[in-house]
């Protein structure tokens, strides 16, 4: 971007202001998490006395208390639900995308619209009937009650992403394979899937983040500690520990530690993956 060449002083001033703005924003965005982690080591009294400072005594036991309070189980449940959702969702979306890109069939445009259309409907509009279905089929309070709707609500965007990527794969590859006598299933598996690896990674990451953070289904469709995911887990955790901020904050810190660690280690891939689909 051009600086105002004729007014060097102004240009310098602009630069200083921009630095100040971005530094402030960066601190505002990051500091709450640092505050969370530092205060997770304090007792409630220390915290009230000095919310800014480093802990005088590092109370590591806050973390073990929180861990034993149920955070470990919630994390495990989230892991199960997230993994299952991502695997099923990616499989179905990739199959649908393959057909939408390479196969010729009737009502194709209408079907694609129907799949994409799901993206505009918020979970609220299906919540009450879904709740009844879960109750009547006995799925209520099981992992399936979370996995199935999570897959369904994630499919539109995932299919969109994968389809857009597949249109960039030259059709000649498939035609050559057809000549060699390969069937669609084999072309899908041996030609398209390997080529789609980058977009599958991105779509999988987006979907995993969405499911890991999902709230309204988890709030509505499960109630036992043994199936609660971490988002709902920390809610009940927070209610139970209103008075013990140190342990509460240690619990919150533990609950985000897996995501945070992954993000900090692979932030380039993370930002790249989560923003794929920004341009067509």
């Amino acid at each position: 971007m051009a600086t105002a060449r004729s007014f060097p002083a102004l240009a310098v001033l602009n630069r200083v202001i921009l630095w100040a703005v971005f530094l402030t924003l960066a601190v505002i965005c990051v500091y709450p998490m640092i505050w969370l982690f530092l205060n997770a080591f304090k007792t409630t009294n220390d915290m009230f006395a000095a919310t800014w400072g480093l802990p005088k005594i590092w109370h590591w036991e806050n973390f073990s208390t929180a861990w034993n309070y149920g955070i470990s189980r919630y994390l495990l449940n989230s892991l199960v639900v997230t993994t299952a959702t991502v695997v099923v969702e990616l499989s179905l979306a990739t199959m649908a995308a393959y057909a939408l890109v390479v196969l010729n069939f009737r009502a194709k445009a209408a079907i694609y619209t129907l799949i994409l259309g799901g993206a505009i409907l918020p979970p609220e509009v299906s919540l009450i009937p879904l709740f009844r279905v879960m109750a009547e089929t006995g799925l209520y309070n099981t992992y399936f009650a979370l996995i199935l709707p999570n897959v369904a609500f994630g499919l539109p965007f995932t299919t969109f992403l994968i389809r857009a990527y597949m249109t960039g794969i030259p059709g000649e590859l498939r035609e050559a394979a057809l000549m060699d006598g390969a069937g669609e299933a084999r072309i899908f598996r041996e030609v398209y899937l390997p080529l789609c690896r980058p977009i599958l990674a991105s779509a999988g990451l987006i979907s995993a983040m969405r499911v890991w953070n999902e709230f309204i289904f988890a709030l509505t469709f499960v109630e036992s500690e043994s199936v609660k995911t971490v988002t709902i887990g920390v809610m009940s955790f927070a209610v139970a520990l209103r008075a013990d901020w140190g342990v509460l904050m240690a619990g919150l810190a533990l609950s985000i530690l897996p995501i945070l660690a992954t993000f900090l280690v692979m932030q380039r891939q993370f930002v790249g993956g989560l923003t794929s689909g920004a341009v067509k």
């Binding site: 179905l92 979306a93 199959m95 649908a96 393959y98 057909a99 939408l100 196969l103 079907i111 129907l114 799949i115 799901g118 409907l121 299906s126 879904l130 199935l148 709707p149 897959v151 369904a152 609500f153 499919l155 539109p156 299919t159 669609e184």
Partner: peptide, 13 residues
């Protein structure tokens, strides 16, 4: 090929 995805959307959305 599209049926599984479509089925999920119809049943759950």
């Amino acid at each position: 090929w599209v049926a599984p995805a479509l089925l999920f959307l119809v049943i759950f959305v």
